[in-house]
Amino acid sequence: TYYTVKSGDTLNKIAAQYGVSVANLRSWSGISGDLIFVGQKLIVKKG
Results as ranks from 00 to 15, higher is better:
residue 36 I to S: 02
residue 46 K to C: 14
residue 18 Y to H: 12
residue 6 K to F: 04
residue 3 Y to W: 04
residue 45 K to F: 14
residue 26 R to M: 13
residue 14 I to C: 01
residue 2 Y to T: 11
residue 13 K to N: 11
residue 40 Q to I: 06
residue 38 V to H: 06
residue 11 L to Q: 01
residue 32 S to L: 11
residue 40 Q to T: 06
residue 24 N to P: 00
residue 19 G to V: 05
residue 21 S to H: 06
residue 36 I to Q: 02
residue 26 R to Q: 12
residue 18 Y to R: 03
residue 34 D to P: 07
residue 3 Y to E: 01
residue 29 S to M: 05
residue 11 L to V: 06
residue 37 F to D: 07
residue 22 V to C: 08
residue 8 G to P: 02
residue 42 L to V: 08
residue 42 L to W: 02
residue 15 A to L: 03
residue 32 S to G: 09
residue 4 T to D: 05
residue 12 N to R: 13
residue 28 W to F: 05
residue 9 D to W: 02
residue 34 D to V: 07
residue 24 N to L: 13
residue 37 F to T: 11
residue 4 T to R: 08
residue 21 S to V: 04
residue 10 T to I: 04
residue 28 W to E: 04
residue 45 K to T: 11
residue 17 Q to S: 10
residue 43 I to S: 07
residue 39 G to A: 03
residue 8 G to R: 04
residue 24 N to M: 13
residue 27 S to E: 15
residue 38 V to F: 05
residue 27 S to W: 10
residue 37 F to G: 06
residue 41 K to E: 10
residue 6 K to E: 08
residue 2 Y to E: 11
residue 29 S to K: 02
residue 40 Q to L: 08
residue 32 S to N: 11
residue 27 S to D: 14
residue 28 W to H: 03
residue 26 R to K: 15
residue 43 I to Q: 10
residue 22 V to A: 08
residue 10 T to G: 02
residue 40 Q to F: 06
residue 14 I to G: 00
residue 1 T to G: 10
residue 11 L to R: 00
residue 13 K to H: 10
residue 35 L to F: 13
residue 25 L to C: 03
residue 9 D to T: 01
residue 44 V to N: 02
residue 20 V to D: 02
residue 30 G to L: 07
residue 34 D to E: 10
residue 25 L to E: 00
residue 12 N to F: 14
residue 14 I to N: 00
residue 44 V to H: 02
residue 21 S to A: 07
residue 44 V to S: 02
residue 25 L to I: 15
residue 24 N to T: 13
residue 3 Y to P: 00
residue 4 T to Y: 14
residue 39 G to Y: 04
residue 43 I to H: 08
residue 5 V to Q: 01
residue 29 S to P: 02
residue 10 T to C: 06
residue 19 G to M: 08
residue 7 S to L: 14
residue 19 G to K: 10
residue 11 L to C: 04
residue 34 D to Y: 09
residue 42 L to T: 01
residue 32 S to C: 12
residue 20 V to W: 03
residue 29 S to G: 07
residue 46 K to R: 12
residue 36 I to M: 05
residue 35 L to G: 11
residue 5 V to M: 02
residue 37 F to Y: 14
residue 39 G to M: 03
residue 36 I to F: 06
residue 43 I to D: 03
residue 28 W to K: 02
residue 30 G to S: 09
residue 12 N to Y: 15
residue 37 F to Q: 10
residue 3 Y to R: 01
residue 37 F to E: 10
residue 40 Q to A: 05
residue 17 Q to C: 13
residue 15 A to N: 00
residue 18 Y to P: 00
residue 34 D to F: 09
residue 3 Y to A: 03
residue 40 Q to E: 06
residue 8 G to V: 02
residue 18 Y to N: 07
residue 11 L to A: 02
residue 45 K to Q: 12
residue 15 A to Y: 02
residue 44 V to I: 15
residue 38 V to A: 10
residue 5 V to K: 01
residue 38 V to L: 08
residue 39 G to V: 04
residue 27 S to A: 15
residue 18 Y to G: 02
residue 47 G to S: 13
residue 36 I to P: 03
residue 2 Y to P: 07
residue 1 T to V: 14
residue 45 K to S: 14
residue 9 D to C: 04
residue 19 G to S: 09
residue 33 G to V: 07
residue 27 S to R: 13
residue 14 I to E: 00
residue 18 Y to E: 06
residue 17 Q to R: 13
residue 47 G to C: 12
residue 44 V to T: 07
residue 5 V to R: 00
residue 36 I to G: 01
residue 17 Q to G: 07
residue 14 I to Y: 00
residue 39 G to I: 05
residue 28 W to D: 05
residue 31 I to V: 10
residue 11 L to Y: 04
residue 26 R to L: 12
residue 46 K to Q: 14
residue 41 K to I: 15
residue 1 T to A: 11
residue 45 K to Y: 15
residue 26 R to F: 05
residue 6 K to A: 09
residue 6 K to Q: 13
residue 8 G to T: 05
residue 37 F to I: 10
residue 31 I to C: 05
residue 13 K to A: 13
residue 35 L to M: 13
residue 38 V to I: 11
residue 30 G to D: 10
residue 7 S to R: 11
residue 7 S to Y: 13
residue 7 S to G: 09
residue 40 Q to D: 07
residue 29 S to F: 05
residue 37 F to M: 09
residue 3 Y to N: 00
